[in-house]
Every structure is written in C-alpha cells, then in structure tokens.
C-alpha cells in the first residue's frame, strides 16, 4: 500500500516535480485570455496625418522636453521611456497637452495626453511599443500655445507591432 512505501529521495523528487508541473499548467490555463478574430488589421496612419494636426503650422522649439529612451532596444514590444518637461505646472504656466510619436509605427501617435495644473512636476515613465528602428518625438504644448519637442533615435532589434 502506498503509505507503507518507503520515502525515497527519487520518489519524493518525482512526485514534487509532477505536482509543480500540474500547478503551473493549471495557472496558465486559468489566465488564458480569450480574444476575437477579425479578417483585417486596423488602418495604418502616416506620420503626416498624425503630426500635422498637432503642429498646426507651428514650429516646436528644442527646449524644456527631455525624452529618455535606450539607443538600442532589444524588444520593440516593451521599450522603457522617461519623459520630463520643465514646467512649474501652475495655473499660469503649465503643460496642456503632451504627445509621443514613433515615426515608424503603424499608428505613429503612441498617446496624446491632456494635463491640468495641480500635478506638480512633470516626470512620466511608460513602456511603449516600437515597430522598427525609429525616431521618437515627445511634443509638449504649453497653455500659451508654445510647442517644445525632443527627438530620439532608437534602434530596435525585434519589432513590437507584429
């Protein structure tokens, strides 16, 4: 009978392995996300289509925005990004809109954000996707309409947009 069996190192290890494998697979199965299938991918946007409405004829100055990205990204699916904008974030002087654009992405506009004073210092960290070697731009629009930009070139080893 099973409980009379001597506990051996080999037997115990085997049982533990079986048990942990079982637990891992159960966990995986539970977390499996369901998804829908569509016949076509979403539309592709050009850089111009995304950039023109933001600039609206204005030329941004290369000041106040600091965009930090790794020069070489191994995985385009997760590229860590830090974004700093010099601004007191007061009612009189604050960043109103913030845009991040990856030139080579199928949809270059990664995000557009609107901000309200009261948050204090502006320092954000996000992980973004890059489809290919690309220039990434961060554009800050101040409450008085001034535009500031910084552009960074990133080399991507494996693209993150399928």
């Amino acid at each position: 009978m099973i409980w009379r069996e001597a506990i051996t190192r080999r037997g115990l290890l085997g049982k533990l392995t079986a048990l942990s494998t079982l637990l891992i697979f159960r966990r995986r199965a539970q977390g499996e996300s369901e998804f829908d299938i569509t016949p076509a991918p979403p539309p592709v946007y050009t850089l111009e289509e995304r950039l023109t409405p933001i600039l609206a004829g204005r030329t941004p100055k290369h000041e106040r925005v600091t965009l930090t990205l790794p020069p070489h990204a191994e995985d385009g699916g997760t590229v860590p990004m830090q974004l700093d904008v010099e601004s007191p974030m007061t009612d009189e002087d604050h960043v109103q809109n913030l845009y991040v654009i990856a030139d080579q992405n199928p949809d270059p506009l990664v995000f557009s954000a609107s901000l309200h004073p009261g948050g204090g210092q502006l320092r954000w960290k996000l992980n973004i996707r890059l489809a290919d070697n690309s220039r990434v731009r961060a554009i800050a629009e101040m409450n008085d309409g001034d535009l500031f930009v910084q552009e960074v070139e990133v080399e991507v080893l494996v693209g993150g947009c399928g």
Binding site: P42, N105, F111, S112, A113, S114, L115, I128
Partner: peptide, 13 residues
C-alpha cells in the same frame, strides 16, 4: 480634480 488624462493607441506595451 482630474490631473492627467492619457489617450493611448495600441502603442503602449
């Protein structure tokens, strides 16, 4: 007060 609002595309990880 809503202080931040981020409209994202699928460009976030």
């Amino acid at each position: 007060q809503r202080i931040i609002s981020v409209d994202a595309s699928a460009g976030l990880s």
